[in-house]
Design a binder for these strands. Structure first.
Length: 269
DNA sequence: ACTATTTCCTGGATGC
DNA sequence: TGCATCCAGGAAATAG
């Protein structure tokens, strides 16, 4: 389940492989869910375009495109199970392949997504500015203001991409643990000091995770097919019933906004 | 303007 | 072993 650190890792890997390459032709599958823009629009925007910068915005991968001086963007959201693979044309086409881009270098860039929660879209250059602020860039004052007056649980607020973009279930739980805040706490009731801890914790967790190549849970691998290692640093996520690594109290799991949420009832208040 | 709930989707895990 | 059921969850849609 790619969140910010995994998407960052994937985007860096893709940038190394496809920057400067030209998309010669595009095949799109019949399933409509993976496409946010129309198939015709995606194909016509991608074909004959040169790939410029490849980068992450929130949980999206953004490819800057240039065709005869006209700029546009190809935006990929991996959802839960989406993968972008760069491979030789002979490579067997994986089940659930929804897009194949033939590149001038002779390789192919393929989008594979069994669960089809991922989305592909294209936009004219200026259009795409995802809502929400990058969590690695936000300053403390703005961070505190995000939660001002919000009655929703802090966990839900962290997952809200219109506030912060890129934080998902794993990193929300891990950040709240490090900040000592229970996931069900109403955002508006959290003190400035606690929010300052959370601000630091979110950045710390994301930076550490990026340094370790993300968390490999389920089948996540980076653009080189390598696993990340941050799952070894998880202190609460998917550790229900196991002892807290700080105080040995069993980790609890509750459901908030439909997501499993893990916390230590003693360390988090 | 917010917030909570439901829906989409398949593979792997679980239960009988 | 086999079949049915459940569960994972990001974000959009829906409802309140």
């Amino acid at each position: 389940m790619p969140e910010l650190p995994e998407v960052e890792t994937i985007a860096r890997g893709l940038a190394k492989r496809v920057t400067g390459d030209v998309i010669e032709s595009v095949w799109l599958g019949q399933k409509k869910e993976p496409l946010k823009s129309s198939a015709a629009q995606i194909a016509s925007t991608l074909e004959q375009s040169r790939i410029g910068h490849v980068r992450r915005m929130g949980k999206h991968i953004v490819f800057d495109l240039d065709r005869r001086k006209k700029e546009s963007k190809w935006i990929v959201h991996l959802g839960m199970t989406g993968r972008l693979q760069v491979c030789d044309p002979q490579t067997e086409i994986a089940k659930h392949t929804h897009a194949i881009l033939k590149l001038s270098s002779g390789r192919e860039l393929r989008f594979v997504d069994p669960r089809r929660f991922g989305r592909l879209s294209v936009t004219a250059s200026a259009e795409f500015d995802a809502l929400g602020i990058e969590p690695l860039e936000i300053d403390l004052d703005r961070f505190i203001f995000l939660f001002h007056g919000r009655k929703t649980p802090i966990k839900s607020a962290l997952l809200n991409q219109k506030l912060l973009r890129g934080v998902g279930n794993i990193y929300a739980d891990e950040s709240l643990f490090r900040a000592g805040i229970r996931p069900r706490r109403r955002a508006a009731t959290i003190t400035r000091d606690q929010l300052a801890r959370l601000h630091a914790a979110v950045k710390e967790v994301l930076r550490e995770a990026i340094a370790l190549g993300g968390s490999s849970v389920s089948d996540y691998v980076n653009a080189d097919g390598e696993e990340g290692f941050f799952q070894l640093q998880h202190r609460v996520y998917a550790r229900e019933g196991e002892p807290c690594l700080v105080c040995k109290t069993p980790i609890k799991r509750v459901v908030i906004a439909g997501r499993s949420s893990h916390y230590c009832p003693k360390c988090q208040k």
